[in-house]
Design a protein around this nucleic acid. Structure first.
Length: 379
DNA sequence: GATACCGGGTTCTGCCATCGCT
DNA sequence: AGCGATGGCAGAACCCGGTATC
């Protein structure tokens, strides 16, 4: 145990049990059940108290830098377990390049990680490696989301998910993006993923679409979060958008599998709040309902934006003499952060840039292109 | 060569409720 | 009763550059 050399003595009890478990082919579960029963043999079945926390485990975790309070809050049962594998898990992650701090953070946030066996971890890591090539990237994902990696013990299900998603015609690049950004997708039961996919295909059929497989694939590929959202949430958003924008079937199909795919998983209240805020502001600026529809169809991401952020951006632009008509025509000027809009408006104003004659697209070109452009303008 | 259009990259967990099992 | 497994929820932008088009 090179990882935490100062705590060897504390580990002897755990290690001996680990050895017992491995060498005698007794499952950790049966070992702990046996020990618990022996420990409480004096108390009657009916008034058996909750098992006390495992003191040596607590000390062990503390020495590893684990936030025990947090761990207790998350999964109290783990701290009561007699047999755990914190050293094995730590060593495993350390071998993969995780720092002690990262490991402590992982266990603090998802204590059940220490109940996983090395065999399980090796298999799971190999499965992840099918999709993500470097250990370093996997470590960074596990660090970001310990739960996604450790929540289930079912490697078979993970494998089924890979097969399932591949069978949809998703590319290895798509799979990488799914696992890197929405790793929970692979912890979903494959049945749930199948149901979610069927739901997307049914939406397509409902709106008269012909190629429902492609429709679903497009959505997943454009919105990696889609499979970890409830169908209820997506359904509510679809109904809301159709009703609010009075979308035809054809428009619905185009929007949902196109630019609008990214906003289908926005939380329902958020979508409503943002849409309402947008509508109110547009009305106050003298816009018509058709303007709002056109705006959302060409730039659905605007519904991702909180009302305060949206209004701040509009305020900046309008104050600089840009008209709402110009913004509706080039909505992606709203892509910029408020800070970036403010900065560019100031610089351009100093140079006497005229947005009426010269247009507004200069605002949302990339920083590199903008700097080049500014140089040419004499800035 | 400059601009317009557009898609893509990044990102999103941490908590709670429920269920079935033991 | 307590546990592990699983499903569901809230919250909410910004930036870059390839390529078509003028």
């Amino acid at each position: 145990m090179a990882l935490f050399p100062g705590i060897k003595a504390l580990l002897s009890f755990h290690q001996s049990l680990t050895v017992l478990r491995i060498s005698s082919l007794i499952s950790s579960h049966s070992v702990s059940q046996y020990l618990l029963k022996r420990f409480y043999s004096s108390s009657t079945e009916s008034e058996q108290p909750a098992a006390p926390e495992n003191e040596s485990l607590l000390q062990n975790l503390s020495l590893m830098g684990v936030d025990v309070t947090k761990a207790r809050q998350r999964q109290p049962g783990v701290l009561r377990k007699v047999v755990t594998n914190e050293q094995g898990v730590a060593q495993f992650l350390n071998d993969k390049g995780a720092s002690n701090k990262v490991i402590a953070g992982i266990i603090s946030r998802f204590p059940r990680a220490i109940t996983r066996s090395i065999e399980h971890l090796e298999t799971r890591w190999a499965l992840w490696k099918n999709i993500i090539q470097t250990d370093a990237e996997i470590v960074s994902i596990v660090d970001r989301s310990p739960e996604a990696f450790f929540r289930t013990n079912d490697n078979g299900n993970f494998k089924k998910n890979i097969d399932f998603l591949t069978s949809l015609g998703l590319s290895s690049k798509d799979l990488h993006r799914l696992l890197a950004t929405a790793p929970r997708t692979f912890s979903n039961s494959v049945e749930l993923n199948k149901q979610n996919l069927e739901f997307l295909e049914e939406i397509c059929v409902e709106f008269g679409g012909k190629n429902s497989e492609n429709f679903a694939k497009n959505i997943i590929s454009r919105n990696p979060y889609i499979l970890i959202r409830s169908t209820k949430r997506i359904r509510t958003n679809i109904d809301f958008l159709r009703a609010t924008l009075k979308l035809s079937d054809e428009e619905s199909l185009a929007l949902f599998q196109g630019r609008g795919a990214g906003i289908l998983d926005v939380s329902n209240e958020c979508m409503k709040k943002n849409a309402t805020g947008l509508q109110q502001r547009l009305v106050s600026l003298g816009c018509k309902k058709a303007d709002m529809k056109k705006l959302i169809m060409s730039y659905p991401g605007i519904l991702f934006m909180g009302t305060d952020t949206l209004n701040s951006k509009l305020d900046c632009l309008l104050k600089a003499g840009i008209t709402i008509k110009q913004i509706l025509k080039k909505p992606r000027v709203l892509d910029l952060s408020v800070q970036n809009i403010t900065g560019r408006l100031k610089e351009l104003n100093n140079l006497g840039y005229d947005f009426q004659s010269d247009g507004v697209t200069i605002l949302n070109i990339s920083k590199k292109r903008y700097d080049e452009k500014l140089k040419k303008l004499g800035g």
